[in-house]
Amino acid sequence: MSTQSPTPAPGTDTVPAVDAARASEDRSARIAVTVFPALILLAAAVGFFAPGFGQTLAPYTSIYLGVIMFAMGLTLTIPDFALVVKRPLPVLIGVVAQYVIMPLIGLLVTIVLQLPPELAVGVILVGCAPGGTSSNVICYLAKADTALSVTMTSISTLLAPLMTPLLTLWLAGSYLPVDAGAMALSIVKMVLIPVVGGLVVRLIAGKLVDRILPALPWISVAGISLVVISVVSGSTEAIVAAGGIVLLAVILHNGLGYLIGYWTARLLRQGERAARTTSIEVGMQNSGLAATLAASAFSPAAALPAAIFSIWHNLSGAVLAMYYRRSADRHQADPVRAVSV
């Protein structure tokens, strides 16, 4: 759900068309991220109250996730990766924080709340997932650094086949057996191939893709909704038994991710916009991937934290975006100049 579009050279006759496409995509993204939590709540209700219907969707969760990742790939362009060379430090901080802070917070939360093994693995797996696809839109709405957000999400996603299985094995292996190899292969199939495929299609048919950019956030919303219906429908007993404690775990995990992500960037002398971007990128996870992996590698109960995280982090992200947006004027004169923001 990136808000990035390729920008032609000034003076070309394609500029107005691209600007119009970008404006349309931005409007669509703002609407999508606003109604997203409501649609996810509706999806959760459908899964809970009509579990039979949800179970008919469950065998195809990997396909839904692949479609989401392909849509994400369609939003990417080669310049989105240029920041790795132009501004490597903030990108490195964001990606490292993503794969250090959230996994460790997830482990800490499971220990403090003394979660049972299946729920503990689910929480840790959420922490080991890459950045969420809606984080780019939240950064845009928060007046953070959207280009930096896109790059962070892209890099963390491309690293997911390696980082997510290894971290899950390391942190969650004491709770349940973890087949890191099978998990890595699943991520390659569901994430890496679709994202790269979308990027290639964007390179080949950029003008055509520009026309459908406004629809891409809605494809992501629909895909995540189907994943939530599938996961919740298989976790109705777990929701009744442990829904409250899982919600608490998710709130703590997400909130601490925002807070620690922000102050990590600031302590490393990043500017205000870069710090807000790191905060959002760290706190918002690819919960659709975590839910799909948990359901296939462990059990529907293990996917419950990811399903609840999907609902909560979009609600909290929208609120955080409003807060950051309102506070943006106070930080126009940013005292930290170590990195251009």
Rank of each mutant, 00 (worst) to 15 (best):
V85C: 02
W218P: 06
S149N: 04
I280L: 10
L107W: 14
V178D: 08
V178A: 07
V209R: 09
T77A: 10
M1G: 09
L199I: 14
E281G: 06
R326A: 09
A249T: 02
V240E: 12
I40A: 07
V109F: 05
M72R: 04
L158G: 05
S299I: 06
A215R: 08
A23H: 10
I63L: 13
Q332P: 00
G283W: 12
S135E: 10
I40P: 04
P59F: 10
L208H: 12
F298W: 11
S156E: 07
V18G: 06
L92S: 09
V84H: 01
R337L: 15
S174P: 01
G122C: 08
A120F: 12
Q285H: 15
I239W: 02
E118F: 12
E281W: 14
S149W: 03
S134M: 11
L320E: 06
Y99C: 09
G132T: 13
V95A: 03
M72K: 03
S296N: 15
L92T: 11
V196A: 11
D334H: 02
Y60L: 11
A297K: 06
A222Q: 03
P51R: 04
V201S: 08
S28F: 08
V100S: 15
L125P: 13
I204V: 15
R202D: 08
K189M: 07
L57T: 03
I212R: 08
P161T: 05
L125I: 09
Y140Q: 12
P165L: 08
G73W: 04
Q285W: 10
A215H: 11
S135Y: 01
A9P: 01
A238C: 11
V35D: 00
I260G: 05
H313K: 02
D19V: 10
S5V: 15
V282I: 12
P161L: 11
W218Q: 14
V227G: 00
D26M: 00
S296V: 15
V85H: 09
S230F: 07
P300A: 15
D80S: 11
S296F: 08
Y140W: 14
V150A: 06
M190L: 09
L304D: 13
A17E: 15
V336M: 13
L125W: 07
G257I: 05
T12I: 04
S287H: 09
L104Y: 14
H253N: 11
T12L: 06
L41I: 13
A222L: 12
P177R: 04
F309R: 00
G223D: 01
A71S: 14
G317E: 11
F36S: 03
V84L: 12
V250E: 10
I308L: 15
T34C: 07
A328V: 01
T292K: 05
A38P: 02
I155G: 08
A338K: 12
T151E: 06
I138N: 02
A97T: 11
W263R: 13
G257R: 02
S135W: 00
